[in-house]
Nucleic acid binder design. Structure first.
Lengths: 189, 189
DNA sequence: CGCTAACGTGAACGCTCACTAACACCACCC
DNA sequence: GGGTGGTGTTAGTGAGCGTTCACGTTAGCG
């Protein structure tokens, strides 16, 4: 890993910004090129296609989340403590990388089939960590309810990137963490 | 208003389904036409443009939510009771019209400028009802925190349409309602 | 020094797509 | 029965865009 951001990473960063703002189909190859200071087809020296670029982005996010989740799961035996750690971890990521979060759950449909399956698999494994913790902590009335609760928590923690976005992280973070923890504890009605 | 769904409404319904699945730019005029049994440019007999169709859809949603919110606000003097009613109302809408919810917060960016401003204004007014109730109920540590909490609640309630989607509503609804209420009560840390 | 590989450019191609134009059908009504 | 407005169709047009191609430049290296 180079100390100076490589052109590849530069492209990924700017593309994420643009995709988050205008959507995958709302951004042109020329537009991405212009954002990094080169023009148009130069991207094909670094990525096989526009879809390939998106694929690398989304796979990267999913892998990062799953890796973090697995690490926390290994550290915490107590499911309630694990959930608290997961909430902190996910909230931190969502507030630090708002563009990635936005792109991830808006443009998944634009992935070519094999990559989409890959991302879906990674996401499913990540969700499974949450579902498992919820069930072990007796915080869900069943498999399906646990899944609803996990997705609900994601929606809550991912909400700030999607909406205004320019809320300062140090204001939003404690609110979101407190809300999510309370929401999870309340799920079994 | 005809008892049989007019062609206009038919188009709006099918377009919502398609937009939700593939995104605004991922759906063609011909595709929408095919979905309602006519082909292609026939849509221009009912809508001025593809963007106009989207505009009518999103304005309709925003107006519906705002109207519902205002009605509830008029009925409930107690802010906590109002919040409970808002949660029930919004959750019901989100689970009954998952496609509309999906399109609303994914494709707002694809609206032409005047309509986008219109929708943003309606949304802001709707959020204001929530923010106001939260503050009057002493459930937020400040203006900005209240806004974060409101958007968080939306993210939670809107989560099921976005994710799996094929979860049965009568399973998801009570879980989401309980989670959202708990989350809102927890927001002041 | 020449060879090579990495990186960039502008021009061209081919396709999709929103939108328009010209025409047809049909219900309705005076 | 003829005019009229609503609703459809097919063919065409022009623009945008992803991708490829042929070519230029530069850096490293035997």
């Amino acid at each position: 890993m180079p100390v100076t951001t490589s052109r590849r990473e530069q492209i990924l960063t700017e593309a994420a910004r643009l995709f988050a703002r205008h959507g995958f189909h709302g951004v042109s190859i020329d537009g991405i090129g212009a954002a990094v200071g080169v023009s148009g087809p130069a991207l094909y020296r670094h990525f096989p296609s526009k879809e390939g670029l998106l694929a690398e982005m989304l796979v990267g996010i999913s892998e990062h989340l799953l890796a973090g989740g697995q690490e926390l799961a290994a550290e915490h035996a107590d499911p309630v403590a694990l959930l608290d750690a997961l909430v902190a971890f996910h909230t931190d990521f969502a507030l630090r990388q708002p563009e990635l979060i936005t792109v991830q759950d808006r443009d998944l449909a634009n992935l070519p089939d094999p990559s989409r399956r890959r991302v879906r698999g990674l996401q499913r494994a990540y969700v499974e960590i949450w579902v498992d913790a919820l069930r072990r902590a007796d915080l869900a009335a069943g498999e399906e309810a646990a899944r609803v609760a996990a997705h609900g928590a994601f929606g809550l923690m991912n909400s700030t990137p999607r909406s205004a976005g320019h809320t300062r992280g140090d204001v939003a973070a404690p609110v979101l963490v407190a809300m999510t923890r309370a929401a999870l504890r309340a799920s079994p009605v």
